[in-house]
Design a protein around this nucleic acid. Structure first.
Length: 557
RNA sequence: GUCCCCGUAGCUCAGCUGGAUAGAGCAACGGACUUCUAAUCCGUAGGUCGGGGGUUCGAAUCCCUCCGGGGACGCCA
């Protein structure tokens, strides 16, 4: 379909140039205009806005310009163009011959599971998402990040990028020390020693359970050791257990990673120290109150400088994060995308500023700030608290509402919007739940195929399609199907997976309406053949859209 | 105080890099199952796109400002 757009663009450009040479009107540069798909069918298959954009330069009413251009468009050079009209403020509308829609069936059936994919961009993108602290279970916000990141990665792949999914394990730093102290306290308490629990410690039941399992394996072996060694052994055990569980839970959620990257490894390899040295050499670091600060303040959009090494000599999370992002770009990614919770937004400008200081182009780093999720059960808000462990974790969420409903709910909304997730609503298999609406369309089509097979009706090949039997309802479906690769491109460009959820719902709507008005299996053989092929194209497209979102396309419901 | 997100129908939201008469779902009301799955469809009703300026041929969309809601401003991550 893209080819048609280029051809039309070319037609318009030539016609405009001809206008200039014939002095119909004058302009110096032809503005970058659009060949868009009008919302209203009455406005044709494609519309061009060039006349409005030329109005100022040409000093002529847009409508008049459009007429001059339209009169010079050579329709015969592109066979698929049937008619050109000027409408509205000065739109040039193209009405296409059926020829171009007739290309859709063979395209879809040939590409099948690949339909929607765009040509290779020959670029590598890394998507880093979830990256939860391995000190607790995955919560509802991580679930949104997981659904979003995984879908985005799928969409980028479809749009022709090479994509690597990455999880950054925060297995170093302050919170790990607190975690270790909490583990130690629980360990000693469970073995009957009277010891106070750290004030800011991890008091959740899951932490106690982890310690209990450790005791089951190793009994009281650690009691006699010194505290540092005891903590090290406990935390190593706990981090491994927690990470494994996260991996498993994310896999249950349909999320798989290419790389698990350890923060601790950055310290151990000396990369953090190396980055600090480099920044110091470039004059970006200074000392104040005993700590080492990164000078980010030169950039107008950065509020404050940030500490990279504390007064006690320990590097901060930020220091490690700079080293981490340097490492990402050193691995050769053309573009790096992070999905962060909105509460991290203060970090964005400083991170970019640090990357710039290190000699990288900060524009190659995109950070999606995902607004926070509130969890409800009916009208009751469920408060999140990592410390007390009262939140609903991702594994419980999957258990309660199912993977498909959960993933679709998270990904159907723009990441810019806050999300209220109602457990009661999500578990209902009802109208409130758009995922079933889309899945139902797929199941219905599968049912038609089963009936067809039972009656001995075979699916025809696209080249056998009698195009003339298709009515306006069928053509509307074909047009929507034809849009899919472009939808993928837009979703990839704007980093907005929710567009694909929206698209799937729209396509399902058109299909359900068609289904209720027309029978696929009927007495007219050529009509039946055409419709059966058509619904198969719908099925492929819906399935590919759902797959991009990590949602199943069921055969039965 | 500074910064980020949001404000569109009664509710939940979509609206792509400005484009033609602002769209869905839910809720309300009225219809459609002896026929491929009624988890569906068809119709009716519902809007000063938070307010005010500005840019433009054209603004829900871009800029400024004010109001309202949420969030962040730590030698935590």
């Amino acid at each position: 379909m893209e080819r048609i757009r280029f051809q039309l663009e070319d037609l318009v450009t030539k016609a405009a140039e001809q206008c200039r040479s014939e002095q119909a009107f004058n302009y110096s540069d032809l503005p970058e205009f659009a060949i868009e798909t009008p919302r209203d069918e009455g406005h044709g298959d494609f519309a061009c806005n060039v006349a409005m954009l030329l109005a100022r330069q040409a000093r002529m009413a847009p409508r008049k310009i459009a007429e001059e251009i339209a009169a010079r468009i050579d329709v015969s050079s592109v066979t698929a163009v049937e008619n050109v009209e000027v409408a509205g403020a000065g739109f040039i509308n193209f009405f296409m011959d059926d020829v171009w829609l007739a290309q859709v069936p063979s395209l879809v059936t040939q590409m099948d599971a690949m339909y929607g994919c765009n040509p290779s961009k020959r670029k590598r993108i890394q998507v880093e998402f979830v990256s939860a602290n391995p000190t607790g279970n995955l919560h509802i916000g991580n679930a949104r990040g997981g659904a979003l990141g995984d879908s985005l990665a799928n969409i980028l792949i479809m749009d022709g990028y090479e994509v690597s999914r990455e999880f950054y394990i925060n297995d170093a730093g302050n919170q790990i020390d607190i975690f270790a102290a909490s583990l130690e306290a629980r360990y000693l308490q469970l073995l009957g020693h009277s010891i106070s629990f750290p004030e800011n410690g991890y008091a959740g039941k899951d932490v106690a359970d982890t310690v209990q399992r450790f005791i089951g394996l190793h009994r009281d072996n650690l009691v006699e050791l010194d505290s540092e060694e005891r903590r090290r052994r406990l935390v190593d055990y706990a981090l491994e257990e927690k990470s494994d569980y996260m991996l498993k839970t994310l896999a249950d959620f349909g999320v798989f990673y290419d790389v698990w990257f350890s923060e601790r490894s950055l310290h151990e390899s000396g990369q953090v120290a190396a980055v600090l040295n480099a920044l110091r050499a470039k004059g970006y670091l200074y000392e104040e109150d005993g700590a080492l600060w990164f000078r980010a303040g030169n950039e107008s959009d950065v509020e404050k400088d940030e500490v990279v090494v504390r007064a006690n000599g320990v590097p901060t999370y930020f220091a490690a994060d700079i080293a981490y992002h340097v490492d990402k770009f050193e691995r050769g990614f053309d573009r790096v995308i992070n999905i962060w919770g909105a509460d991290h937004h203060g970090h964005v400008a400083r991170m970019k500023s640090a990357l710039k200081a290190m000699g990288y182009d900060p524009d190659n780093l995109d950070i999606i700030l995902m607004q926070l999720v509130r969890l409800f059960r009916g009208t009751q808000l469920i408060k999140m608290s990592k410390r007390t462990g009262t939140t609903v974790a991702l594994d419980e969420l999957i258990e309660e509402v199912g993977r498909d409903a959960a993933r679709f709910s998270f990904v159907m909304r723009s990441s810019d919007s806050g999300l209220d997730f109602d457990l009661q609503l999500a578990r209902q298999k009802s109208l409130e739940n758009p995922v079933y609406y889309v899945q139902y369309a797929h199941a219905r089509i599968m049912s038609i195929h089963r009936q067809a097979a039972a009656a001995g009706v075979k699916l025809i090949k696209p080249e056998q399609l009698d195009y003339s039997v298709l009515g306006s309802a069928e053509k509307e479906l074909l047009r929507k199907i034809a849009d899919f690769p472009e939808e993928i491109a837009i979703a990839a460009r704007t980093l907005a997976p929710h567009r694909i959820a929206r698209y799937a719902m729209d396509l399902a709507t058109i299909f359900h309406s068609f289904y209720n008005h027309h029978r696929v299996l009927n007495d007219d053989e050529s009509l039946q053949n055409a419709r059966l092929l058509l619904v198969e194209l719908v099925r492929i497209t819906i399935k590919n859209a759902l797959t991009a979102l990590g949602v199943e396309a069921p055969d039965h419901m």
